[in-house]
Nucleic acid binder design. Structure first.
Lengths: 224, 224
DNA sequence: CGTCGAATTGACTATTATCAAACTAAGTGG
DNA sequence: CCACTTAGTTTGATAATAGTCAATTCGACG
């Protein structure tokens, strides 16, 4: 069975354990590939197995807003079920692999495995909470707090996957970080430099080492 | 049966039609009452029947961020299902009434009415899309575009409920609008004054009349 | 070694926040 | 009925923050 290999190693929560049984297909993506396109019809969810993916909205005037960065173990494609059309573009930020879970299979199987419904609800609810957290950041934090919160969040998610929480490589460019956080790429770059100068992090291109997590949390308004 | 009276008149989509059958209880709220509190355990969803409700996150440092304004026909309580704890506070902005739908009843009933699952997914997905839209606004629009988009959105939702799309009363204060849009109350007030001076709207306290929707859409970056 | 995309840094500007004062509308109690 | 609150709003003056434009620099790769 192909399912079990689709659970990323080190995934902390067992949310996906049943959904994983539904995986009948996997898709490989190369850097820059689109997993799906805005307005395209939606009939499946995607569990990210390896790599990283971003989702972004594009409005009528071509304005782009990144709405999420996804790491292995996370589920992509939860928006757009309202009218079965994807509400965003999903782009691979590096070579990646996703597991495909057909919606009809979820419906089918959950008839005799009722707890599956709860799993799906929880996954969707998590995505809602996540975006509300980002709203909190964009709505009420200053630039340095946003970036600090971003780094802390990334650190935590990577650590949950079994990677180091202090040393990691960011898969996204300064521009993408800025877009996500509602800042310009220059502001993001300056903030990285400042954090480094103040001894909070070491940073070289996309490699980051967190030196003073407490100070970062302080900046992010999270009492440590 | 108490269900059918819980569908707000004029609700355009029939999303709630089956869920409505599950309503066994209704709750009346007075202005300022909390429907639920952050961290409280979650075992039901709430369909707003009359009135208006806001949801807000509160972080460790007491910082508050309003994450949504809800109108009749909309569903409250979709976040927090991850660990069955509400992730936000829900506060009535005026005297309101909600229909209570127990999660266990949803699970129970959806066993012999499978399409119910799709309904729930669609409602949750809509909430995800909604917050992504707000992310777009906070992340990439300037203050005037945010407020214009806010007014357009409110107008559309009220019109879908059968109210005038051009004349309405905002239930929220300048401060609440500002908090939601990531602006200060002074900036919001100045923008209202400017929009009025430029002939886009008439505004007196919380009463608004939209005079030039096309110009508003232009400001919001929505091609009309 | 040269090219190209990404990142850094600087100088300057625009936008929005902050602080402060005055005004309004809707009560409340004498 | 009329001061007198009070919460909400408006407006102004000033300051802080982040954006824009522009010039280098860095690193990866052919």
């Amino acid at each position: 069975m192909m399912g079990n290999v689709c659970l990323p190693a080190g995934m902390p929560e067992r949310e996906l354990e049943q959904i994983d049984l539904l995986v009948k297909e996997r898709v490989r993506l190369k850097k820059g590939d689109l997993l799906y396109r805005q307005e395209e019809s939606l009939d499946a969810l995607f569990g990210l197995r390896t790599g990283s993916v971003k989702t972004q909205l594009e409005d009528a005037s071509g304005q782009v807003q990144i709405t999420g960065f996804f790491l292995p173990g996370e589920v992509i494609g939860l928006d757009g079920m309202l009218d079965s059309l994807h509400a965003s573009n999903a782009v691979a930020m590096e070579d990646s692999e996703v597991c495909v879970v057909k919606l009809e299979d979820i419906d089918e199987v959950s008839r005799y495995a009722p707890s599956l419904q709860g799993q799906v609800r929880r996954i969707m609810s998590k995505e809602i909470s996540r975006s509300h957290q980002v709203l909190l950041a964009l709505g009420s934090m200053r630039s340095e707090a946003r970036l600090a919160a971003f780094l802390i969040n990334l650190s935590q998610r990577l650590s949950a996957l079994g990677y180091s929480s202090t040393d990691f490589v960011m898969r996204m460019s300064r521009e993408e970080i800025g877009n996500y956080l509602g800042l310009t790429l220059e502001t993001v770059s300056r903030l990285f430099s400042r954090f480094a100068r103040d001894g909070l992090i070491r940073v070289s291109q996309r490699e980051v080492r967190i030196l003073d997590l407490d100070a970062l949390k302080q900046l992010a308004g999270q009492v440590s």
